[in-house]
Design a protein around this nucleic acid. Structure first.
Lengths: 193, 193
DNA sequence: AATTTAAATGAATTATAATTCATTATCTAA
DNA sequence: TTAGATAATGAATTATAATTCATTTAAATT
């Protein structure tokens, strides 16, 4: 197994992403991934410990990249509402731009203990971002004082994920990012007439 | 394979639910399920076509039962808000009462084509229930006219699922049903101060 | 250009677990 | 009580696919 992230390493990782997304981790085979990457089966083992490791590396890599984007997005907003809009837009944009990642995050989360804790980490970081935003909103007076923050943040994340999940089911046939503002409006003002 | 749903059939199905929930469909083995049910491996094949069929039957059975409950719950409410509260309470109650089902619905959804379409069906039925409620709310004037119903219903379902998912991650250590009213309040009035 | 080193190959091996089925146990009814 | 029918067993078989590694190919070095 090599140390530096060569071109071939990335080729394999991307191919794996495509194959995992299409067939799911368990039904995907090493041979499929190798074929997709245009290398021999054995070659995968020069770059990765085993099949699990491929998924692990894939998720690690994507997690770090996405989270960096999200942090930057939040920074761009001044008040709580702006920050929330930037975060949700960024979330939808990143997932729209990488459907394989969206599918894999959605469905392969529970299989490897390592990954599970990784995902818990990113989920926690995300929820912490939301906590900060909500608390800022409460200080600014733009969000209610009586909110149960623990519930609100899960509710916000759940709803975004639901919207992404629907988009994936629809095979990514519509623009996901344009859902951001209507979604945030729902968070803010609810459905009541 | 037997026709009538004997006691043993149910024993195996429940055991499978427990094992699938703990290990995931792919890591779960026939031997584990058989051991859990207190029968020999071969016995499973007297009651089910194969491993896939066990998951399929499990989800079918649960889906029908839960959906029946949800329909009944909605019927109990008069106006849209009541119906929504009953639905969400029922949803949380049913999943809280059957954690294995909650885990399996959450994570095994994408593996069998048959199941996928089954799940799409129940998800569609659920979303239709929500559509009806929202439309009724708009007629009553208790919900805004300008709502994008397609988004709102996914948003509601996503948020409930998110809350359930968090509860599962926390190993079911708190009362899920008590989240229903705060959750509905968020749907209705949002977070704005 | 020859030699050494590194990378890649893919057929053979290994591991795992689903499924089968010959055998055994249990039940039913005459 | 026993013959026949039905149900259950679990070791042997089969299927699948991950992983290895002896061999080949390519790259680097002198």
């Amino acid at each position: 197994m090599q140390k530096n992230k060569s071109e071939k390493y990335n080729k394999i990782l991307n191919s794996a992403g495509a194959v995992f997304a299409e067939y799911g981790f368990y039904k995907a085979t090493i041979s499929q991934i190798a074929a997709q990457a245009g290398v021999a089966d054995g070659t995968l083992y020069l770059y990765f410990k085993n099949k699990d490791d491929i998924l692990y590396q894939f998720i690690s890599f994507k997690t770090i990249a996405v989270f960096k984007e999200m942090n930057a997005a939040v920074e761009k907003g001044g008040n709580a509402e702006e920050k929330l809009r930037h975060l949700i837009r960024c979330h939808l944009r990143e997932f729209q731009n990488d459907k394989n990642m969206a599918i894999i995050f959605q469905s392969e989360v529970r299989y490897l203990r390592d990954i599970e804790s990784q995902i818990k980490d990113i989920s926690k970081m995300y929820l912490d971002l939301l906590s900060d935003i909500i608390e800022q909103g409460q200080i600014e007076g733009s969000m209610r004082q009586d909110l149960f923050v623990g519930l609100v943040k899960r509710y916000i994340l759940g709803a975004v994920e639901g919207v992404i999940s629907t988009w994936v089911s629809a095979d990514g046939r519509y623009d996901l990012v344009s859902m951001a503002d209507p979604l945030v409006d729902l968070y803010l003002t609810g459905v009541r007439g």
